[in-house]
């Protein structure tokens, strides 16, 4: 793993996050019907995007781990799921903070909210499993299966606003097939925010992967030490 990759993600985040914040609070016009609170949207949607990306990567890495049984895939899957979970939690919190002034409630059992909450619960289960299992190979395989099954909820979340009656807006792709952002500056701000949150999450993923690789090395060394000690004790 090259340290320059993490530094590149961090540098990109340092440039893009302030740029995105400037665009959200200064550049973009206020949305006519919802007012200033609609600006939550510019970080709420990118958080959802990176959460889905993290969970998707976790499922792909899980499949690779089941097939190749290499520790690095397990570490990638675990790191991606944890970062995905962080951003999924932020999606639910920011969504709730947006819903209260607009819908008049913190939460409603709407199809998109419910399917997102189910995804959050599935990956909470995945992380609990990982926390209990430490370096157990069977737990790692079971977690890989959970990640693959859980990711099937993502397409359901995406199409839920088209399939069922919902109060959640379909902003990016509306039922008519167009995007719901009337001013080009809104789309530009969303694009920069997407890049900013993607860079930030890539940096967090890289940091987490680094700790997991160190942990794997630690377990490997412990095994080596135990073997060497056993040989040493058995020697005449």
């Amino acid at each position: 793993m090259r340290p320059s990759l993490g530094a590149a993600f961090a540098a990109a985040g340092c440039v893009l996050v302030p740029a995105a914040l400037f665009m959200v609070f200064v550049y973009v016009p206020t949305e006519a019907s919802q007012g200033i609170v609609q600006r939550i949207f510019y970080f709420h949607v990118p958080c959802a995007w990176v959460a889905f990306l993290g969970f998707g990567l976790s499922a792909v890495a899980g499949a690779f781990y089941l097939f190749f049984a290499q520790q690095v895939w397990d570490d990638i899957g675990y790191a991606a799921a944890e970062v995905g979970m962080l951003f999924c939690t932020l999606v639910l919190i920011t969504g709730s903070l947006w819903a209260k002034p607009i819908w008049g409630t913190w939460w409603t059992w709407d199809s998109r909210l419910t399917t997102t909450f189910i995804l959050w619960l599935l990956y909470a289960g995945y992380l609990l499993l990982r926390a209990m299992g430490e370096e157990n190979e069977q737990v790692a395989r079971l977690a890989a299966v959970v990640a693959i099954v859980a990711v099937l909820d993502i397409p359901l979340i995406v199409i839920s606003v088209r399939l069922w009656r919902t109060i959640h807006p379909a902003v990016l792709v509306t039922r008519s097939g167009e995007h719901g952002l009337e001013d080009p500056r809104m789309l530009q701000t969303l694009a920069v925010s997407m890049l900013a949150i993607s860079a930030l999450s890539a940096w967090l993923f890289w940091l987490r992967l680094k700790t997991l690789r160190a942990k794997s090395r630690l377990f490997e060394l412990r095994r080596m030490l135990a073997t060497a000690q056993a040989i040493g004790d058995g020697a005449p």
């Binding site: 914040l21 007012g35 200033i36 609170v37 600006r39 939550i40 970080f43 709420h44 958080c47 962080l86 939690t89 932020l90 919190i93 920011t94 903070l97 947006w98 209260k100 002034p101 930030l200 967090l204 940091l207 987490r208 680094k210 700790t211 160190a214 942990k215 630690l218």
Partner: peptide, 30 residues
């Protein structure tokens, strides 16, 4: 409405900051 907006953005950055601190502490220990 401004308070909701402020709360949403604050929570995002506080959560990311806390996560980075947690990762840094784990890395140092490891």
């Amino acid at each position: 409405h401004l308070s909701y907006l402020f709360a949403a953005y604050s929570i995002i950055f506080v959560a990311v900051f806390l996560y980075v601190i947690l990762l840094w502490r784990r890395q140092v220990r490891l």
